[in-house]
Nucleic acid binder design. Structure first.
Lengths: 169, 169
DNA sequence: TAGACGTAGA
DNA sequence: TCTACGTCTA
């Protein structure tokens, strides 16, 4: 690994606080919040399980994530082909990040949530750490092309500082 | 723009020194060395010209850049299709970055050179600022598929600190 | 080797 | 919308 902040880990990352803001995915990678520069769901092996460490969620990004008070409805990974020029839609599979989120739910293992926010100046994003969530439920939905998409319901762990989102938009 | 260090500029960047090392393209973008995260040649409008500000050069990357003492032979951009899964080779065109380098040669405008070095631990790169160069010549070559590739000869400006490259490999 | 919620500029 | 010397994991 090449992260500066130490090893990949579950839960709170030392030195990173709720509300901390970052310019690039590479920065949240460097501080150890979310190691993958491109994937939305990051995960790691822990004992015999693969558990989610963190997710990057963005409203209105084509993934249709929804933040509603302390609840996040998050879309699984794979199949949607959003980054493809030929937008072929496939069913999402219960593997990798999706499977890690289910395992995290089963073991009540907390997941770091980073919100990707649209910039005011151009089409890119910036990123704000929103704190720890637990996965409470998941289900399948049909995407626009009839393909299977997983949805995960995450609830923000109590006792964390609140974030004034108006400050970041 | 979103760079932290100020506006895009030609020549020396305040606060950045020969030998400074960076982990990611996003970092050299943040400090103002090379604004584009993906392009090898960065450039800007200056009066009625488009001039090169900086290039990222890597030996052994498939682009066949060559460093030889204070001379760099650098390959132009476009056409080579290295990042494509279907490796279709086209002729490079005298546009964008390639044109900017020719303009920089004509006006003897200095170009910042960043060397992309292979990491020891994985397949990615890190980046070291090598200082200012001037473009002294350019020509066409035929690439492996017979396609046209531009080559640029850059010479390192005298009076700059030397770099102990063994330190970085 | 390919896939994944990458980025900026034309 | 596309291209461009991205970057990591499986």
């Amino acid at each position: 690994g090449k992260q500066v902040n130490g090893t990949k880990m579950i839960g709170q990352v030392p030195g990173v606080h709720v509300g901390d803001e970052f310019q690039y995915k590479t920065e949240i990678s460097l501080v150890g919040l979310h190691l993958s520069i491109v994937r939305g769901i990051d995960y790691m092996h822990k004992r015999d399980d693969v558990l989610a460490t963190s997710i990057v969620a963005s409203e209105g990004s084509g993934y249709c994530d929804r933040f509603d008070f302390d609840v996040l409805i998050y879309s699984g990974e794979g199949g949607n082909g959003i980054r493809k020029s030929q937008k072929i839609l496939h069913d999402q599979k219960m593997v990798r990040g999706n499977l890690a989120l289910v395992n995290s739910m089963r073991l009540k293992s907390p997941v770091r949530v980073i919100r990707g926010l649209k910039r005011s100046d151009y089409r890119g994003k910036h990123y704000v750490y929103d704190g720890l969530y637990v996965v409470q439920d998941y289900w399948e939905e049909n995407g626009p092309g009839g393909n299977v998409i997983f949805k995960f319901k995450l609830c923000r762990c109590p006792g964390q500082p609140s974030v004034d989102w108006k400050h970041y938009f």
